[in-house]
């Protein structure tokens, strides 16, 4: 099932994100997803997230699909040139993976193999364009595909709370032009900024899922403020996390904050995307608290 069909029906689409293991045993990943994420629409599977080498996104997607979940294949341009990306897409289509999220990808220097060659032959925009070409039965080189053309729900990302919001909007427009059908956002902690962003993004007429990263502690919040692009956690929220350390540690504060943000933003977006970063077990609780 392509998640675009649900957006079209006006459904509030909930997705969450999981990361494949650095190893060959995906059972933990599958178990967690089955236990905590089977109630939601789809599960994103990251592609060597943060440039840290792990099991590939595609096989992990297949494992989730076999367990009855709907996976979204994340695809970055960091590690593969246009030939590899297209062949990966054809393989995904054969395996019945028809939801994808196209990203440029973090730079190689950010991860655990900083010596690696950063590819960036394509970027998120040209990758979306490439997917559209494949859907038309033609590859980027202009050669016809054999048989049936693939069809994907084509997602992309955007950072609504970035300091460079104009540049982000411009890029979003280009992604739409290149074929993006839905967007998932970077983590949002400032609903008013998000709402302002959505006012401007409305014109593109594409569904946007609010991005949520569960804040685990004041320390994590400060770290993200200093190091993670497009994220800003207001001081009150950091104080809230610092106020009761035990409560925060148990995840209660984080869940409360996440649910509150979702509630506040829900009228302005078409879904939510939760990046639990290991706290997949908290996802049902957040959704319950947020009234979804």
């Amino acid at each position: 099932m392509r998640i675009t069909e649900l957006f079209d029906k006006g459904q509030f689409v909930v997705t969450a994100e999981v990361g494949p293991p650095k190893g060959i045993d995906a059972s933990h990943l599958v178990d967690e997803a089955k236990t905590y994420l089977s109630g939601i629409t789809a599960v994103n599977v990251t592609d060597n997230q943060s440039s840290v080498m792990r099991m590939g996104s595609l096989p992990a997607c297949v494992a989730l699909k076999n367990a009855g979940l709907t996976p979204i294949l994340q695809l970055t341009c960091r590690d593969r040139n246009r030939i590899a990306l297209q062949s990966e897409l054809l393989g995904a289509a054969m395996l019945g993976i028809d939801n994808i999220l196209c990203l440029t990808g973090d730079h190689t220097k950010m991860g655990d193999h900083p010596q690696a060659k950063p590819v960036f032959d394509l970027d998120s925009v040209s990758l979306l364009h490439t997917v559209c070409q494949l859907e038309k039965g033609v590859d980027l080189g202009g050669n016809a595909l054999l048989g049936e053309a693939p069809k994907f729900a084509k997602g992309a990302v955007v950072s609504p709370c970035s300091e460079s919001v104009d540049a982000q909007l411009a890029k979003m427009e280009r992604k739409v032009m290149a074929g993006a059908e839905y967007f998932q956002t970077q983590a949002v902690y400032e609903p008013e900024k998000f709402i302002e962003f959505m006012e401007k993004a409305k014109q593109f007429g594409k569904p946007v899922q609010l991005g949520i990263v569960i804040p685990k502690s004041a320390g994590m919040a400060k770290f993200m403020n200093n190091n993670v692009a497009g994220i800003h956690i207001p001081q009150e929220m950091i104080d809230e996390l610092a106020a009761d350390k035990e409560k925060a540690k148990a995840g209660i504060t984080g869940v409360e904050i996440a649910a509150r943000i979702i509630k506040e933003c829900k009228p302005y977006c078409q879904g939510v995307h939760i990046m639990a970063l290991g706290w997949e077990s908290k996802v049902p609780e957040i959704l319950k608290l947020a009234g979804i």
């Binding site: 990203l103 440029t104 973090d106 730079h107 220097k109 950010m110 950063p118 960036f120 970027d123 998120s124 925009v125 040209s126 990302v157 955007v158 950072s159 970035s162 300091e163 460079s164 104009d166 540049a167 982000q168 411009a170 890029k171 280009r174 290149a178 970077q186 190091n227 993670v228 692009a229 497009g230």
Partner: peptide, 30 residues
């Protein structure tokens, strides 16, 4: 990343994710 279709999500405070002393090129272009 030599991107030619616009900014990536890696800019923080207008600076590049790879080098925090380097302004994001797409920020400048914009």
């Amino acid at each position: 990343k030599s991107l030619i279709n616009g900014q990536c999500g890696g800019a923080k405070n207008g600076m590049c994710e790879v080098d925090p002393n380097m302004e994001c090129g797409w920020e400048r272009i914009q």
